Simulated scan of single mutants.
Amino acid sequence: MRYIIIGAGAVGGAIGGRLHQAGHDVVLVARGEHATALREKGLRLRTPDEDVTLRAPVATGPDEVEPRPDDVLLLTVKTQDTVAALDAWAPAAAHLPLLCVQNGVANEEIALRRFARVYGVCVWLPAQYLEPGVITASAAPLTGMLHIGRYPQDGTTDDTARAVSADLESARFLAPVVPDVMRWKYAKLLSNLGNAVQALCGMDQPDSAELLRRARAEGEAVLAAAGIPFAGEEEQAELRGDRVNIHTVPGTERGGGSTWQSLRRGTGSVEVDYLNGEIVLLGRHHGVPAPVNEALRHGTNVLAREGRPPGSTSAAELLASLPS
């Protein structure tokens, strides 16, 4: 199989780099300065174990890639960019399997409008993209944990999911094939509610922990009201075990999660509408208020629009503005 990585940023670059390093056929899709750097210098992949430069083929869009019957598309863009990416690739590739390797729970349904063979992937892959051409992946001995499952869920798995899993596991990932992938993705959604806290308030403010606690409590209450199951934290930790541990990568900037990185790079947009905003949306459907997540959603979007850096908001002031 050939893997087309649509969005070779932190997650896509780490997965594409590892697959290429393991001998698999990979095309990295990127834009702007990142695409230029990948073409001219290669993908620099920094991990706790090594610092390597990988020369995989690079494309800026579907007009530069001739689809093959054995292609598998890995969609790794942020959710706010999903529609544009799918609309670009669907005309030539809608018959191919598409894996939504993304945070949030909205992408699979969006993809299913355009692609017949859709798979969800729950991403637990601590990675960072702050400089064109350079990806830092900080977990070892395995680089990440990627649950794979068919969408819509029908209680079964298939050969495509198993083949992709085998390739990912050959490339230093834990990649279970599961019949209930959305249960894992909703669990990851709960943990991703902290992305906005980190982006708004930075990583060291003492009141950030209380914001995170309240955001997650709202999330769990909303999912309970909606009757949506999610994997427990102990279940996730037991599966990871000692195989996917976060380490310091020498010489790299201490950074945050994906939303923090978007603000740090000044992209102008963040994915909070599909993380904290997902809890707000479900809460409105089921009559459960989610004021903390709404404040985090709104505040992070303001920082992105105004081009302000991460950590620009006082956690104590934000807490004081919320209903008790």
Rank of each mutant, 00 (worst) to 15 (best):
G227C: 12
E169K: 05
R46Q: 14
C201Y: 09
F230A: 11
Q102H: 07
V197I: 07
E210F: 07
D63W: 11
Q261Y: 03
D51H: 10
K185W: 03
Q153P: 08
H20R: 01
D242R: 14
H24W: 00
Q236D: 08
G219W: 01
L43Y: 02
I5G: 04
G283C: 03
V178I: 02
L99Y: 15
S165V: 07
A187D: 07
R117N: 13
N107E: 09
T47P: 04
P229K: 14
G149I: 00
T156G: 11
M1P: 08
G255L: 02
A22L: 00
L282E: 14
G12M: 04
N245A: 11
G149S: 02
V58K: 10
E50D: 14
V197K: 03
N103F: 00
D242P: 03
V280F: 10
T252I: 13
A90S: 14
G42E: 04
G268I: 06
T156S: 15
I228W: 05
V58D: 05
E271I: 08
G144F: 03
A209V: 15
L86E: 05
A295T: 12
D154P: 08
V83N: 10
S321W: 06
S314T: 09
R284S: 15
A295R: 05
V249A: 06
R284T: 08
R162A: 15
P250L: 10
Y151M: 01
K41D: 13
A225V: 10
L211V: 04
S269P: 00
D25F: 01
V58E: 07
E108W: 12
V65C: 04
P309Q: 07
A320R: 12
G7F: 00
A84W: 01
T136A: 07
V101C: 15
M145P: 02
P69H: 13
C122I: 03
R240Y: 06
V27M: 03
A14E: 01
L319Q: 02
P250V: 09
D159G: 12
N195A: 10
I228M: 09
W124F: 14
S314A: 13
V121N: 03
P48D: 08
R264L: 14
D273M: 06
G299F: 07
P57N: 04
R113D: 14
G307H: 05
A221W: 09
V72M: 14
P48K: 06
L319K: 09
R113C: 10
V105I: 15
L282H: 10
R305D: 08
